[in-house]
Amino acid sequence: MNARALTAACRRTSALSAGAMLGENPLFLLTYLLRLLRLAALLAIWRAVFAARGQVGGMDVEQVLTYTLLAGILAEPLNCRTGLDRSLWEGAIVTRMLQPMGLVASFVSEMAGRWAVGFAFCSLPMLLLAPLLGVDPWPASAAAAAWFGLSLALAIVVGVALDFLYGAAIAVLKTDIWMLDGMRHAVALLLSGAVVPLALLPWGLGRWMQWLPFGALASAPLQIYTGAGDAPMLLALQAFWALALCLFGRWVWRLTRERMVSYGG
C-alpha cells in the first residue's frame, strides 16, 4: 500500500470510527459532561491547596491551573488507548491482521477518529469555558507553544508504543485484561503527572519520575506548555523514549505475535 493510499485509508477509518461513536452512542455527551465536572472540581481543589502560597516546586497557582486545564482538554492524547487490548480480548485482532493497512495504522486511525469527536464536543468547549473557570488557557510563550506541538506528538508516539507493549504483555501473560487495565490506569495516572504535576510531589520524587517513560506522556508536554520545565531536556527525553519504545515494541510484538490467542467475546 503506497503512502497516498494509506493516508486515504487512515482518513476513512478515522471518519468511520468518529461516525460510529456519534451514531451508536447518543449518551456520549454525558461522558464529556462528567469530564467537565471533574475538571471544575480539580481546579477548585488546586486553588485551595495553593491558597496563600507562592511557588511550590517551581510552579505557581496559575501554572498549575493551566496545567490541569490542559490535562483535562487533552485527556485522550495524553493517555493513548488504541483499543488493542479489547481487540485481543474479543478475538477481533484476527480480522485486523487481515487488513492491508497494518495494525498500527488501523488502531491509530480509529483512535484519531474518537479523539476528533472528543475534541469537538469536549476539548473545544472546555477551552472556551476556561475564562469562566478562571483559568488562563494560553501557553507561557510563543516558543512554549511551538515546543508543545512537538512534545505532544512525541507523547502520542510514546503512548501508542506503550499501548502496544501492553498488548504484547496481555498476549504473553494470557490473563484477565480488566485487572491489568485497572493497574495500568492507576499507575499511569500517578506516574505520568496527568492529575498531580510531578514537580509537586514531595521528597523530590518528581525529579526521578520524569525520567520514566510515563513522564513523557503527560508531564513533559504540560510542563513545556506552562513554562515550568526545561523544554530541550524534556523533548530529548521524550525523543529517546519514543525511539526506544518503538524499537522495543516492534521487537516484542514480533516475538509475541505467534503466541497471541483469541479469548473470545
Partner: peptide, 27 residues
C-alpha cells in the same frame, strides 16, 4: 492477582497522599 491488586490500590491513592504530605494537608 494480588500483586496487580496491591499496585492498583496503592497507586490509586498515592497521588492525593503525596499531595497531602507535600502541602501538609488539603485545606
Amino acid at each position: 492477582y494480588y500483586l496487580a491488586d496491591a499496585v492498583t490500590a496503592v497507586a490509586s491513592v498515592a497521588g492525593v497522599l503525596l499531595l497531602a504530605q507535600r502541602f501538609d494537608g488539603i485545606p
